[in-house]
Amino acid sequence: MTFELFIFYLLATIASVSGLMMITIKDPVKAALWLVLAFIATAGVWITAQAEFLGLVLILVYVGAVMVLFLFVVMMLDINLSIMKEGFTKYLPIGGMVIVLIAAMMYLVLGPNNFGLEVTGNPVIHPADYSNTKAIGLELYTVHAYAFILAAVLLLLGIVAAITLVLRRRPTGEVRHQSIDKQVKTQASERFEMVKMKSESEEPIKPKEEEDK
């Protein structure tokens, strides 16, 4: 077994186990963390397959940003697990049918007819200075430029749609704004005023003996 093969099997095992844990574990926070581990292991597998750009972007985008936001939401949910588990047996037949259907569809696409060295040929082994990033960039910005722009516009549309859905305009006066510019530019003289006044002193209490006399 070569070192590369060892690394591949290690990462593949981690990815499969963490994927299984993600769907079987009950606590949603732990499930999200297992998914993160699955992502990282998958990124490692991609990097061993000489797709270092995709692997690193998977970590950067999904692990570093998307899953953090996911965890954010999941951590703040107060989920009653017993309610979630209700009706498990009721939905089991439908769930089973869906599983069989998906497995059959995956077999049709990923089955031995379409995969294997006879179909795809031996993978191309690139020299050490081959830049995967440059190859993807050239393809993306020349051959697939229109598809790329279309995808970007679709994402922008998604952002605008999400913001319009939750935007709630309130009448002016109801919302109090603060002018950060004014706060930043503030000077000590505006915050603090020196007031001139005479110093006050208490009358000294007369000693008792003088009163007696």
């Binding site: 990282i40 972007v57 570093g64 990033t133």
Partner: peptide, 25 residues
């Protein structure tokens, strides 16, 4: 001496945030 060094740094340092989140939770 990888040729995606900059991206590697960005990707790896983006994982650090999990230390904070997991510790807090």
């Amino acid at each position: 001496d990888v040729n995606a060094g900059l991206l590697y740094i960005l990707a790896v340092t983006s994982i650090i945030v999990y230390g904070t989140i997991v510790a807090g939770w």
